[in-house]
Structures are given as structure tokens and as C-alpha cells.
């Protein structure tokens, strides 16, 4: 099963440290270079703020990715519990961006790469769960309020188990108008 990072709006304070952490980890030492062309600022997750909600939004690494189905050049693939974009293959057709129901994909320039006509190369960009980075996703690690968690298969199952338990309890209590401990064999 694919993993994904989930934000909790009850803990998020909207500070966007996750976005900076994301750029720092993906740009590496380039962030210290003076030449502006050697560096791009393209976070792979985005802070969303509504009237009463603050939470970062990013790729859910779907099991049947709409982006992958839409890609005409097979630049999107699954590997190592995640959905990835092969940026060298990507032709920037925006089909994936259009197909994604979560707005998790955007089109970004590639630092220092020019096309034949001199224009900047643009490719699809989204969360890669910090592939190849020791310690896992940077956003999870840098968040000051621990509002982000990496959800793995195991955790999803735990969560489902807990929910099933809760569901059983609430159905039971609804029927018998009591808590499970005071049931005592009533019909």
C-alpha cells in the first residue's frame, strides 16, 4: 500500500515551516548559492487557509492514481509505497494536474534548465514523500506542533480497527440506551 502524509487542522498553526522544510530538503545546498538561477522555490505541499481551517495539503499517493492514468508519456509510476514523477520524461502537458482531484500537482520550472527556444523547462511537481531522504518526510520532522504524520499501512489498519470498535460501541449503546458495562444481559 502507498503511504501518505496527513495534516491535522486541530494542531496546525499555519506557519508554513513544512513548505520551507520541503524546499530545503529538495534543493539541498543550492539554497545557499548566490546565483538566483541555481535555485527554485517549489514546495511540494501547500498551506490552505479558509475561514476556520488551516492545514497543509499534499499528494495522497492514491492506490489507483488518476494522474498516472492521465499521463500520456508514462512519466508517473509507483515505487517504494509512493507515487512518483519522472521529471526527465515529463513533457509538462498538465494532464495529471487536471486529473488530480486534490490539487496536489502544480507545474514548476526546473532550475538552470533551458529549452531550445531559451524558455525555462517546466514539469509536474508533487510530494514524493522525500524519497531517498534519511529520516523520512521533512515536513513531518520540521513541524513545530507535530501536525503532520506519515500514514503507513500499519497505521491505517490500526485506525480502521479503532473506528470499527467505536462504531460497534456506539451502535450498541444506541440500541440499548446504556454504556457497554451496564448492559448485563438485557435483551
Amino acid at each position: 500500500m502507498n503511504y501518505f502524509v496527513k495534516g491535522n487542522p486541530d494542531l496546525c498553526i499555519g506557519c508554513r515551516t513544512c513548505m520551507i522544510g520541503c524546499v530545503v530538503v529538495h534543493e539541498g545546498k543550492h539554497i545557499f548559492e548566490i546565483d538566483p538561477d541555481s535555485y527554485t522555490f517549489h514546495p511540494k505541499l501547500h498551506m490552505v487557509k479558509t475561514a476556520r481551517l488551516s492545514v497543509p495539503v499534499q499528494c495522497k499517493h492514491c492506490e489507483n492514481p488518476a494522474c498516472m492514468a492521465a499521463c500520456g508519456v508514462n512519466a508517473i509510476y509507483q515505487e517504494d509505497h509512493r507515487v512518483l514523477i519522472h521529471t526527465e520524461t515529463c513533457i509538462g502537458c498538465k494532464a495529471c494536474m487536471d486529473a488530480c482531484p486534490f490539487g496536489a500537482i502544480d507545474m514548476v520550472t526546473v532550475a538552470g534548465v533551458r529549452q531550445k527556444d531559451g524558455s525555462e523547462k517546466k514539469v509536474a511537481n508533487k510530494c514524493d514523500l522525500c524519497q531517498g531522504v534519511a529520516g523520512g518526510p521533512a515536513c513531518v520532522r520540521v513541524c513545530p506542533t507535530q501536525a503532520l504524520t506519515l500514514v503507513t499501512e500499519e497505521e491505517l489498519e490500526d485506525l480502521a480497527k479503532r473506528k470499527r470498535m467505536e462504531s460497534a460501541r456506539s451502535t450498541f449503546c444506541e440500541v440499548y440506551h446504556c454504556d457497554e458495562f451496564s448492559y448485563g444481559g438485557r435483551e
Binding site: D10, C12, I13, G14, C15, T17, A51, R52, P144, T145
Partner: peptide, 26 residues
């Protein structure tokens, strides 16, 4: 943000919060 972290954690521990502010802050 480092102080805000304590407020969030307090909330998780069940602290009641009254916020007086003209804006919807975090």
C-alpha cells in the same frame, strides 16, 4: 510559534480556550 505550540498542546490536554481577537487567528 514556539509559544503557540504550548497553546495547541494545552488544547489537546483539554484546556478551555477563550480568544479575544478581532480576527480569526489560529
Amino acid at each position: 510559534p514556539i509559544v503557540a505550540r504550548r497553546i495547541v498542546r494545552g488544547r489537546q490536554k483539554g484546556m478551555k480556550i477563550i480568544c479575544a481577537d478581532p480576527r480569526v487567528t489560529e
